[in-house]
Structure formats: C-alpha cells, structure tokens
Computed example of a mutant assay.
Amino acid sequence: MEKNTRIYVAGHRGLAGSAIWNHLQEEGYDNLIGASSSEVDLRDRPAVFDFLRSSRPEVVIDAAAKVGGIHANDTYPAAFLSDNLQIQVNIMDAANDIDVDRLLFLGSSCIYPKFAAQPIKESSLLSGELEPTNDAYAIAKIAGIMQVQASRKQYGRHWISAMPTNLYGPGDNFHPENSHVLPALLRRIHQAKVDEAPEVVIWGSGTPLREFLYVGDLAEASLFLLDNYDSPETINVGFGKDLSIHDLARIVADIVGYQGVLKQDPTKPDGTPRKLLDVSRINDLGWHARTGLVEGISATYTWYLENITSVRTR
C-alpha cells in the first residue's frame, strides 16, 4: 500500500482497532478513515453504506466487533450473534458496493472446535463442535470468513481474513465480569492489592491453557498480511506458546505486586481446555510475535494505572 492509501479502520476506538490505527500512523500512513459508534452505528445498514460511499476507502480493515469474556458470551449469546453478523455483513456489503479490492477481516480463535488437535491449524475450521459458552460469537466470525471467501469468488476481490488468538494490551475492556480473562485478572488483582484483601477468587479450575498476543503485535501482523498475504484460506495470528490460567494469574500478581492467596472457584466454567494456534504459516511468511508475556502485561498494567479513571468498563 502507498502511504496515502485511503484506509478505513472499522472499530478504530477498540482494543485491536486502536492499535492498528496507531501502528499505521507510526508507519507513515496519513490518509486514515475512522468513525466512532456514535458517528456511525455499524449495525445500521443504510448508515454504513452512506459512510463508505462518502469516504470512499481503498482498503478496509474490519476490526469492529461486539466482544467479551466467557461470562458475557455465555449470558448474551443473541446479542453477540446478531450484532456481529450485522456489523460484518454491513461493512462487507458496503465495501463491495464501492468496489473495495483489499479488505482484512479479523476474527477470533474461538472459531475452532473445542477439542481441535493442538496446536490448532487453519484446516481445523468446521471439523468439530464449538465451545458452547461462546458458540454464538464463533458462528458470527465463521460467517465473516465465509463472506470473505464468497466475495473473492463472486467479485474477484483480494480480501483476506485472519484469526488472532486472545488479545490484550492498552485500551482493553476491564469490566469485572464481561471482560476477557487477562484484563479481568489484572483489574481484580490490582483492586485486591489496593484493598489489602487476603485472597482473590479466580474463575474456574485454573487448568485451562491459553495463548495471549499483545495487541501491538497484532497491529504489526495486520499490516504485514495486507502487504504479503492473498488467499481465501484464513490465517492464524498468535504468539505460539500457552500457559495455564493459574500460572497467568500468578504472573499478573507478581507484576501488580499482590502478595495474597489466589483461590480457584471450580464452580465457574472453564471453557475450552486448551486453545493454542499453529502459527507456522504466518511465521513462514516472515512474521513473528515480538512481545513477551511479562513485557506485555507490564506495559498493559502501566497503561491501566495511568488511565484508571477512564478505562473501558462496559
């Protein structure tokens, strides 16, 4: 892409979108297009069409989504299915309407079967049953992959889709119940330190294994893929290593400086027992994640402390 390419970043205020926006600016791209949800409700089809027809982007990065952790996904499945289907269908249909030739759709590693062979290859898609606590969100993202492939086939577009693993970093949602596991742990353990609480309760058994990718690395991968990847098959974006939720909580406690007890609550759901992506395809293309977990969590905690009165908690 040329530095003056008109690039629309859908969801540019969110965790992934804001990191992508900042990275593009740092790389010298000076013709970025963005709109907050108050300016354009991406569930409003006529509004999305009007916005893309007036802004005329040449490249679209779809980082917009309704997202949440295991509690939110399990509690509000209809909203996660409906909102995400509407958002991505509206964006892609409007992009086809104005003949956008290059589009990147960001999905989620939850698209893969609950008991997929580990590490999970892209070919595992649709090979088994999904994790029931977030199957509605997963189905929406799978539909997004299908729409990318359908648009390539029907219109000859050079659209691609990428499936990031669990993301974290500055700009995350720190809601105590509806956020993802890492920001939820960070907030809860920080508050326990402030309150001098003797223990922190961690959801689940603590044994599930998870992989985490710093959002700045995803931003670099997104630009890398737009420059180097053109295939109908989705591609994984991950760190390549995982750890247990209990070990993650211990790392967070060490970074926060909390000395109390970390107590597991096995009555809460665990979700998928393991979810580690096979990142050999993107690694073979020349991209590798650069930010280690301790480094990334430390940077996220610093950002959290600096923005504690204004962080997202919904």
Rank of each mutant, 00 (worst) to 15 (best):
K263S: 11
R56A: 00
E233S: 13
P198C: 08
F80N: 03
Y112S: 06
I111K: 08
G271E: 04
S222R: 03
V9A: 01
L32H: 01
A78M: 11
F115A: 14
D83C: 11
S244D: 07
A221Q: 00
G34A: 02
K3H: 09
L209M: 14
R187Y: 13
A72V: 07
F115Q: 14
F174D: 02
V9F: 01
G14M: 05
I245E: 03
S54K: 05
L277V: 06
V200P: 03
V40G: 00
V256D: 03
C110N: 14
T309H: 11
I251F: 05
P46V: 06
S205H: 06
D97S: 02
V9W: 01
T272K: 11
Y29D: 00
E122Y: 07
P198L: 07
L285M: 14
P46A: 07
V294Y: 10
D93R: 00
T272S: 15
A95E: 00
T5Q: 05
G128F: 06
P46F: 05
R157Q: 14
I87W: 05
K66Q: 12
G68D: 01
L81Q: 11
I91Y: 02
G171C: 04
A192V: 07
S124T: 13
P232I: 09
D265C: 07
N73R: 08
P198A: 13
T234F: 09
E27R: 15
R56P: 01
R188Q: 15
H288V: 12
E306P: 01
S36F: 02
V67M: 11
Y8D: 00
I202W: 06
S124E: 15
R281D: 13
A79T: 13
R6M: 03
D50P: 00
S108M: 12
K275S: 12
D97N: 03
G144D: 11
A249P: 04
G34R: 02
W21Q: 03
R13K: 13
L104W: 06
K121Y: 08
T75S: 14
L213A: 08
E211I: 05
L106R: 10
Q147W: 11
G286T: 04
Y304G: 01
K241L: 09
Y258T: 04
Q264C: 11
Q25A: 05
A16C: 09
S124R: 14
K241S: 14
S108V: 12
G204Y: 05
P232T: 10
K141M: 14
G286Y: 04
N178W: 14
H23W: 12
P170C: 03
A19M: 06
S109F: 14
I160A: 10
H190W: 14
